[in-house]
Amino acid sequence: MADMTAETTATRQVSFSALRPSREAVVGTLAVLAFLVLWQIAPSMGWVNGRFTSRPTEVFFAAIDVFRKDDFLFHARISLTEFVAGFALAIIVSIPLGVLLGTSKIARYLIDPPLMALYIAPTLVLLPIMVIWLGIDMAPKIAVVFLGAVFPIVLNTMAGMSEADPRFLRMARSFGATKLDIFMRVLVPGSLPALLTGIRLAVGRAVLGVIVGELFVSQAGIGYQINLYGSAMRIDRLLVYVLIVSAFGYTLTILVRSVENRIRDWRSK
């Protein structure tokens, strides 16, 4: 009885404090504001050359321009298509592969070392090969996104499956669980958090893949625009695109992380 009341209050406190701005959030906001002010006045004070740094106000107006008349949607659609196609392919391939590796020791011994090597190597170095094989349309970018995203998901799914708690397996067997039961009701739910961790890590690598891919070889897309404004010294517009990219990556990561946290908390069923 006493336990239970304590428990509920504790839970409530946590959820309330999540709504109230935390000290961390306040400090963070102040720091950003201070940075913006400094950035704004630095060129006028002669500390830096405004031609290279632009100003927050300039970036703001550039953003309005970009969204109004810069074919923003056209470029965004191309980058997004590359991202989604590459990521979807990565998920389709990586989850079954991760499951196979996580449940079969032999498969693991066989494929783990080359997989690790590919994971650690920056997959972007393969871009020139991709261009030779696939041309300069969307395909090489999709391939680079795929290569960036596939390994973190495979490796995390594999780890989640193969590191299942042996006590759970024994418990399940004691109730007469079949292999399929153990897979569906112990291994899969148990490795879901690891899978999501893999997806979250993959998001960052995939975003990087799209943009860098487009920076090097393309005629359209967000990365192409960044490259264009970079060579034209339009720092304000360049920064607008950079901000769009990081906002996109950040939002996706936060989204996945929140699902991950909910599952890791084991509150969901």
């Binding site: 759970f168 024994r170 004691s174 109730f175 739910p189 084991w266 969901s268 069923k269």
Partner: peptide, 14 residues
């Protein structure tokens, strides 16, 4: 037969 294990071995997601 059914076993009550030393460590409760409860599935944390259930």
């Amino acid at each position: 037969r059914a076993v009550v294990f030393q460590e409760a071995s409860l599935l944390p997601w259930r």
